[in-house]
Design a protein around this nucleic acid. Structure first.
Lengths: 150, 150
DNA sequence: CATCAATAGATGTATATACAAATAATGTTA
DNA sequence: TAACATTATTTGTATATACATCTATTGATG
């Protein structure tokens, strides 16, 4: 793949900042494409996987839809509908919150935990493979991304 | 915003590689959300904007749908339908390619060029703003992203 | 030249994203 | 406590993504 200019056949960018934005959009597509093969056989999307991980992170404690929404990777996505999809697959449970009947408590089921466990190792291994950087470089990348949004 | 662990309230990651993947997905969402306000008033999507830029890069030479597809930032998107959307807004023209009637030549119109010009400065300025890095850092980021996909 | 594989593009379908609006419950305040 | 704002979630709609399939044209091969 290599340099972004060759990958998308654009001669040059206005400045390194604009190049970085395009580079991030393009790298995102690279990652999503690479990941999609992993999720497809399990019939869940990457964002559904992410929701399951958020729920498991609660160690059995219920999580509201809005709390899931806040923590999702894609801020504009729709937690309510993703939870509904997961419920239809019996990967999560949904209960009315007793202390505030507007809220909905969402919990991961045993089946959800099992799916997560069977997928997780593959995803982790694949992610290491997709990222062709050494340890120092990847830590530098994390530093820069955190700062970029700062 | 700051560190990804706080932003998505995840305690820790398996390793820096898996953290980087999540960090990239999250940063992508940050950029897309930030950009969306720019495109909305013009009634085009970021990827439609990108297609217009690809076409202008040809300096008047026609571009086939598959060539647009190859150069798009999102590899899985659908160039055919995006071109159709742009055509309905009279931002591009579509002509049967004389040398190969399977192919379709796509050209940007005067109206398309005008829209691009009026948007471009705003997008470029905004992109510089979104990226909270100094020059050295942003160049390092571009190097790392290019290498990551390598 | 007839056949068949390859290619370009369009189209169908399911899911996801983006954003507005509706619904329902709760909190606040006159 | 009645009225109103706020909050949590769901729903509606348009667009985009992801992927398979279809159609038309071209190129290759017997």
């Amino acid at each position: 793949m290599g340099k972004i200019e060759e990958a998308i056949r654009q001669r040059e960018f206005k400045d390194p900042y604009n190049k970085a934005v395009v580079n991030l959009l393009f790298t995102h597509s690279y990652l999503v494409s690479a990941q999609s093969a992993l999720f497809k056989p399990c019939d869940i999307s990457p964002e559904q996987y992410n929701v399951l991980r958020i729920l498991r992170g609660q160690n059995g404690a219920p999580t509201t839809v809005s709390s899931i929404q806040e923590r999702m990777l894609n801020k504009m996505s729709n937690a309510s509908r993703l939870v509904e999809k997961l419920k239809m697959k019996e990967l999560v449970r949904r209960e009315e919150c007793p202390s505030d009947r507007r809220q909905v408590d969402v919990l991961i089921t045993e089946k959800g935990l099992e799916l997560l466990q069977s997928l997780e190792k593959q995803v982790e291994d694949a992610n290491r493979q997709f990222v062709n950087l050494n340890l120092e470089e990847v830590e530098q990348l994390n530093f820069l991304l955190d700062k970029l949004r700062g």
